[in-house]
Structure formats: structure tokens, C-alpha cells
């Protein structure tokens, strides 16, 4: 995948303790971001070929599946309960067969060693993710009509997750699959998603670009985090480059405030360590400066997603009802 960096890790059997791992991939993003750390492709870790993925074609149906394996470190208690629960949740969600959720066909566990269980998730195979899709889009980018369609599907999938009490929490173009027929499929949530935070061996640098202010500030959060990410992705669908490319939490917040303006004192969460005074006062800038092709309806929807206060941010369900989706006047 273009632009995907891999962290240089010590050779084989790199096994981290829980503490190390959580430190290493602390959700707060304490770890160094892109700057300063050298990345290069990782060859092989443990027994499995790390650089490859298994994909198969079902001879009967002609459909493709791909394996995502997850190594779960275990102690004398076996597979962690949380993992087992997540598997159950994923399978439960699967029963709804939602068109905008990547299809999970099976979950197979195999004991590797006493300390490690390999959980293999058999997913439907989708050729590309939104990141590649946008990279491949010919200039001047996706037509409005197309963005509208993708956004509707994205929100549809998200609304489904939220109504099942699942937060995605790491929504980004890499986690949104796009089929050859332009169908959106959300991936990497639940069982798969959890790893993007706790895993020690992710080849991908954790990005802050789609994180909501409350997550960056370390405040409490809920479903609105995904709507923030959706807003960022919405903008990116037009510009084909990330809206806020911060290199640290503070940098990310600074970039956010330079567009949406510094929120008022009364909006600032009181359970956070980072105070509002750390940021210089700014007024909101019109988003059309960055995305000139956005219609008025689009601007309205985007700004409702990029609302600082998570309680006032639009929900996935409400977003689907937004007039942006009913406005068919343009056919650019």
C-alpha cells in the first residue's frame, strides 16, 4: 500500500509484555509519530510469513475470501475473555448481513504455543480501501454525486454499528473498503479493531488525523468520535488529501482549531489536563476555502460533523436525514 510505513522491529519472535505493548502503542499516541523514527519493511516475524496474506477463491461461488490472522497472547488462563466476547459480538453482527459491513465468514482459533493463540478471521475479500480508491481517482477527484453515494453508505454502516452499541473508534480511509462496484464496507472494528490499539506489531503507524478533539484531549468519548472521523473523511473525498495532518496531539488540535476556531471556555471539557490556554484564540475559517466544490448543504453537514462538542455533533442517523442527501439539484 503506497505510503504505508513499517516500523523497524527487532527480529523474530518479538513478544511484548502487556505493559510494553500498551506503552508502545499507547492510544494516547505518546509514541513517536512519523517524524524522527525510521521505518522500513518488516521481513518476517515468528513462524508466519508476515509480508503476505492468504486469499482464496471459492470454486463454487467464485467469491473471494481473505484471511486476517491475529495472534493473541495468552497466559495460563487461555484466550482472554474479552477476545472471546468480541468474537461473539462480531458473529452476532454478522447475522444482520449489513451491506456496508465487511463480511466475516468464519473465526478459527488454533493454539500455536502455550503463550499464543492464533485467531484467524475469514473475511470476504475486497480489492481496495478508500485510501487507494481516492489515490486512484482521476483529477479533479470524485464528482459530488459520487461522494454523496459513498457518504450515504458510510453513514449507513456506521449507523448500524452504533445502533448495535459498537464504536468503530478508528475510522479512516484505510479501514473503509470499496468494492469494485463502489460499495462501501466498514472494516476493522470490534475484534479486528481492538488490535489497532493494543497490537504490538502493527505495520501501520497509528494516525491521529481522524481523531476527534475529545479523544485527542483524553476526555470521555462515545459514538460521536466516529462522526468526527467521518467528517474528516468527507472532506478528504473532495480534496483527496487528509483534512488535518497533525504530528502530535497538540499539533493535531491546533490544526483543527485553525479551521473550526478555538472553542469557547464553556465548551472545553473539564476532565482534561490540557487547558484551553495552550491554544491561541482563533476564529472559525470558512471550510470552502479548503473545499471550494462543496455545496451549501455539504458545508452544513460537514460542519455538523466537525463540531467540537461531541454532544452537539450530528449522529449517524441524523446525518443520513440531512438535506445534503436529498439535494439532487446538481449533477456535476
Amino acid at each position: 500500500m503506497g505510503g504505508v510505513c513499517r516500523r523497524v522491529v527487532p527480529p523474530p519472535r518479538l513478544r511484548m509484555t502487556a505493559q510494553e505493548a500498551s506503552h508502545f502503542h499507547n492510544e494516547s499516541g505518546v509514541m513517536a509519530q512519523d517524524g524522527g523514527v525510521q521505518y522500513e519493511p518488516v521481513a518476517e516475524i515468528g513462524g508466519g510469513a508476515y509480508g503476505t496474506v492468504y486469499k482464496a477463491r471459492d470454486k463454487e461461488s467464485g467469491k473471494f475470501v481473505a484471511l486476517k490472522s491475529v495472534r493473541v497472547q495468552t497466559d495460563q488462563e487461555g484466550l482472554p475473555l474479552s477476545t472471546v466476547r468480541e468474537v461473539a459480538l462480531l458473529r452476532r453482527l454478522e447475522q444482520f448481513d449489513h451491506p456496508n459491513i465487511v463480511k466475516l465468514m468464519d473465526v478459527c482459533a488454533s493454539l500455536r504455543t502455550e503463550q499464543e493463540t492464533k485467531v484467524t478471521l475469514v473475511f470476504e475479500h475486497v480489492d481496495q480501501d478508500l485510501k487507494t480508491y481516492l489515490e486512484k481517482a482521476p483529477p479533479p477527484g470524485l464528482p459530488l454525486q459520487h461522494v454523496r453515494d459513498l457518504m450515504r453508505q458510510l453513514l449507513c454502516g456506521l449507523s448500524f454499528l452504533h445502533s448495535n452499541l459498537v464504536l468503530h473508534r478508528d475510522l479512516k480511509p484505510e479501514n473503509i473498503l470499496v468494492t469494485s462496484r463502489g460499495q462501501i464496507k466498514l472494516a476493522d472494528f470490534g475484534l479486528a479493531r481492538i488490535y489497532s490499539y493494543t497490537m504490538a506489531l502493527t505495520p501501520v503507524v497509528v494516525t491521529l488525523w481522524y481523531r476527534s478533539p475529545e479523544v485527542l484531549l483524553g476526555s470521555s468519548y462515545a459514538t460521536p468520535v466516529d462522526l468526527w472521523s467521518t467528517g474528516c473523511i468527507f472532506a478528504e473525498m473532495f480534496t483527496r488529501k487528509p483534512l488535518f495532518c497533525g504530528e502530535s496531539e497538540v499539533d493535531q488540535l491546533t490544526k483543527i482549531f485553525s479551521v473550526i476556531g478555538l472553542p469557547g471556555e464553556e465548551e472545553w471539557p473539564n476532565d482534561v489536563t490540557l487547558s484551553r490556554e495552550n491554544f491561541s484564540p482563533q476564529n472559525p475559517q470558512p471550510i470552502t476555502e479548503q473545499i471550494p466544490e462543496l455545496t451549501n448543504e455539504g458545508v452544513d453537514l460537514l460542519m455538523k460533523m466537525l463540531t467540537f462538542n461531541p454532544l452537539r455533533r450530528i449522529s449517524a442517523l441524523k446525518a443520513l436525514e440531512h438535506s445534503f442527501f436529498s439535494d439532487q439539484s446538481d449533477h456535476s
Binding site: 511484548m16 500498551s22 508476515y50 486476517k68 490472522s69 495468552t74 475479500h125 479486528a192 504490538a200 506489531l201
Partner: peptide
């Protein structure tokens, strides 16, 4: 393939 499919690891 999409990054999503790559192997990952989770501490137990």
C-alpha cells in the same frame, strides 16, 4: 491488499 487484512497481534 487493503492494510486491514494484514496480520496483527494482540497482547493477551
Amino acid at each position: 491488499v487493503p492494510t486491514f487484512y494484514t496480520e496483527s497481534m494482540r497482547n493477551g
